[in-house]
Design a protein around this nucleic acid. Structure first.
Length: 273
DNA sequence: CCGGAGACCTGATAGC
DNA sequence: TGCTATCAGGTCTCCG
């Protein structure tokens, strides 16, 4: 489901509801998520107070004063939200974690089970982040040259490079297409073939697109919701994603969909020719 | 090392 | 009304 802006929205809205609260007794469905979950480790966090919720790229962390922390990746359909204990259980609820002395609980719902929740100590926390490229939300212009150099080294299509979390963390299928449209770059162009000017347009365009999406609390076209169950408002701001057959706002050409690496890419053949 | 294909899952929707 | 096929905010592993 979520890309960087959605995960960051979930982190913000969860922080408002979780920080300062103490986790109660964990319930789980025994389902295997993307991989088997070490529920024993997670249960060690019972009776600990949550002090921070944050994210890097698409990885969300909930930390307590104790070790380990909670790590979550929402995959395509994962929802992490705080609900009333009395709220009916949605199908595919895999984790329920009551907050002591409240009538609420943290729930993880994930129909496709491409997501992951797990315990995470300092060591694995660092290992996770070490594998990821810079996070556009904390990046400054000083980080641009190294990032551009890495992209220029690749013979892959620029759209696929943008989806590579080890190059840049938090970009997914929506915002890769949107950023390339904004920067007027053909998604099939090889990283190595793009000139410096293209990159100087692309990186700021990408950052702008992600910031805007975050300000709009993310894009909901299917089941994405924030940490309190609310949908995002960014769908109306998208220019090409899932707009196959509609006219480009800039030039009136027809927006096309192609497949790259097994995934849809949306673009304007005229503006991004 | 790199890149491509397929695997992992459920659910919604379109077309016959 | 079924069926089949395709599509969906992601990532991991295997193979050449």
């Amino acid at each position: 489901m979520p890309e960087g802006p959605e995960v960051k929205t979930v982190a913000r809205t969860l922080a408002e509801q979780l920080v300062g609260h103490v986790l109660g007794l964990l319930w789980h469905s025994h389902a295997r998520l993307r991989r088997a979950v070490d529920y024993r480790q997670l249960k060690k966090l019972e009776n600990h107070q949550i002090d921070r919720v944050f994210c890097y790229g698409k990885v969300l962390f909930i930390s307590t004063k104790a070790k380990p922390h909670i790590m979550a990746q929402l995959g395509m359909t994962g929802q992490l939200k705080v609900t009333a204990l009395s709220e009916p259980l949605a199908p595919h609820t895999h984790l329920r974690w009551p907050l002591k002395n409240t009538s609420k609980e943290l729930r993880y719902v994930d129909p496709r089970r491409f997501g992951l929740i797990d315990a995470c100590d300092e060591h694995s926390h660092r290992a996770i982040i070490a594998k990821l490229g810079p996070d556009p939300f904390s990046m400054t212009e000083q980080d641009f040259p190294a990032l551009i150099a890495k992209m220029k080294k690749s013979s892959r299509a620029i759209k696929e490079i943008l989806l590579d979390q080890s190059v840049i963390a938090g970009v997914g299928n929506i915002y890769a297409s949107e950023a390339l449209y904004r920067a007027r770059i053909n998604p099939e162009a090889r990283g190595a073939d793009l000139d410096e000017r293209s990159y100087q347009a692309l990186i700021p365009a990408l950052i702008d697109i992600l910031r805007l999406a975050y300000e709009n609390s993310g894009t909901s076209f299917s089941n994405y919701v924030d940490g309190s169950g609310k949908k995002g408002d960014n769908l109306a701001f998208l220019k090409v994603f899932q707009r196959t057959g509609q006219t480009c706002e800039q030039c009136q050409a027809i927006i096309k969909r192609i497949k790259q690496g097994g995934r849809s890419t949306f673009y304007c053949p005229q503006c991004q020719g």
